[in-house]
Design a protein around this nucleic acid. Structure first.
Lengths: 104, 104
DNA sequence: GAATCAGATAAGTGTGTGCTTATGTGATGG
DNA sequence: CCATCACATAAGCACACACTTATCTGATTC
């Protein structure tokens, strides 16, 4: 349950973009790079950070490495957020939107 | 809804500690410093970051400034997380509580 | 109104971080 | 086997960031 690595990992917009892309479907590092204007080493480093934060996990597939979202990191984040649920109810309309989003 | 400022703000452990302390009860900057081994300017700067991320808000009280958790930032985070709901399933006990709270 | 207090801002500094180019590793294929 | 691939690692560099000390602002109190 390493909040620090998780928040640090997500603090970088490029990494959030990578995560978002992976959330839409697992793929390998080269596929991730497509349309992202990012060098191969940079991608590899970003994936390393996301992986050690358990936001992403890898699966070797021959000489490819398939990456996918690791629920573990998201769970840890949810736990962190749950500590502050006292502060959520204030704006119920927003919460309703949130639940709607979640239901899709 | 600037995810970037929110995640950047929470990436620093000192800032998360400040936020956590404020979540336990509103207080002014000096009270926040107690037991935290942090200089006055540093605290002020951290509060500035948290405030501009809308994780915290201030209320002038004479020559004191009372700080409290701003639900706005947490809401934005919840929205971000909601996008990845598909990946939450495995260990939901905590999350079910979370959603139950949201339903109120 | 001068001293004092809470807090913000300014300016400088060391460290962290994200990038780059270059090279390494390990699997595939001709 | 050796050329090529998908990817990781190494090393260096520019910039961001969290801190410091010093100073400023604006409200309170005597």
């Amino acid at each position: 349950m390493n909040e620090n690595e998780i928040f640090r990992a997500l603090a970088d917009p490029t990494r959030r973009a990578i995560f978002e892309k992976l959330a839409a479907g697992a793929m390998n590092a080269s596929a991730l790079r497509e349309g992202m204007a990012i060098s191969q080493p940079a991608m590899s480093q970003h994936l390393g950070v996301l992986r050690s934060a358990r936001l992403v996990r890898e699966e070797r597939k021959g000489r490819f490495v398939n990456y996918e979202v690791d629920p573990e990191g998201l769970m840890a984040m949810a736990h962190w957020m749950a500590k502050y649920r006292n502060y959520w109810p204030a704006r119920i309309d927003a919460l309703r939107d949130l639940l709607k989003d979640m239901d899709q």
